[in-house]
């Protein structure tokens, strides 16, 4: 082409697209008078008509998309309340740990003490000390008989101390065991209540899931009926795993 008509203008004129009516009229007048543009336009048109001899084909692919479903057994697992069991386990473990952490070992008043749970609020048993009047001044001389008596008093005093200490320890251990039994019984009752609530929730969850599974099965049956003529079924996972196709064995019409 030797004139000032561009290739894009010729194409727009040939397909009558994206061209203003005034521009189209101007081009029409020019083409009628310009042999070069006229011949080019005719060649482009002829090529276009030859190309249109290639008709479309029918693909006969019968593509059908089916969403991948979870296996049935996965539907039976509790999915909405997984924390119940973990919470109950943690609570029981925490109770046991705290229970053991409350054991106290102490040495007071030259005696070995143990306590579980609450600290004992009972004051230690006061041991009566021997009457001070029985203590003889160390400055005065004493006889052999007096020495023996004082030695016997000291031995008796020591026995009383040991006996009092034993009584006190027995009393504290008894009180501690009584309190421990009471606390364990209380915890046992609370744990039974939690377990009962968890079982009730699990039962309700399973009943709901069972109904959902029945509904899904009805839906699947309807879809299989709807796609009865499909020649091929594609199963497309939601993640990036490869898709897979399943030929149904049906002949395409």
């Amino acid at each position: 082409m030797n004139c000032d008509i561009t290739r894009e203008q010729l194409i727009a004129y040939l397909y009558d697209e994206d061209i203003h009516p005034n521009e189209r009229e101007r081009l029409k007048v020019h083409i009628e008078t310009c042999s070069s543009c006229s011949q080019t336009l005719e060649e482009l048109g002829s090529t276009s008509r030859i190309l249109n001899a290639w008709n479309d084909e029918q693909p006969n692919l019968d593509l059908v998309f089916v969403q991948e479903r979870q296996p049935l057994w996965q539907n039976l697992l509790p999915t909405r309340y997984p924390k119940t069991w973990a919470t109950a386990s943690v609570a029981i473990a925490a109770i046991l740990i705290l229970t053991f952490l409350n054991i106290e070992f102490a040495i007071r008043d030259d005696a070995f003490h143990t306590s579980i749970g609450l600290r004992s609020s009972d004051p230690p048993e006061q041991i009566a000390i021997a009457d001070t009047s029985e203590v003889i001044s160390l400055d005065a001389p004493i006889t052999r008989g007096e020495f023996i008596i004082h030695q016997q008093n000291l031995i008796n005093y020591t026995h009383r101390l040991v006996h009092a200490s034993q009584n006190q320890q027995r009393a504290e251990v008894n009180n501690t065991f009584i309190r421990l039994v009471g606390e364990l019984e209380t915890q046992r009752q609370q744990d039974l209540l939690r377990i009962d609530r968890g079982l009730q929730i699990l039962y309700n969850t399973h009943a709901t899931r069972y109904d959902q599974i029945l509904t899904q099965m009805d839906s699947v049956k309807k879809e299989l009926f709807f796609y009865d003529n499909a020649a091929e079924v594609l199963i497309v996972p939601e993640d990036n795993r490869p898709y897979r196709t399943i030929p149904t064995g049906r002949k395409t019409p």
Partner: peptide, 28 residues
């Protein structure tokens, strides 16, 4: 349409028309 082709290929409209012209000429 040429505008749809330009949108699909993400090229200017005149580029589409130009490629069309040269393609048809080569086929001829």
């Amino acid at each position: 349409k040429f505008t749809e082709i330009a949108e699909t290929l993400k090229v200017p409209l005149n580029t589409v028309k130009s490629r069309m012209y040269y393609g048809l000429s080569a086929l001829k």
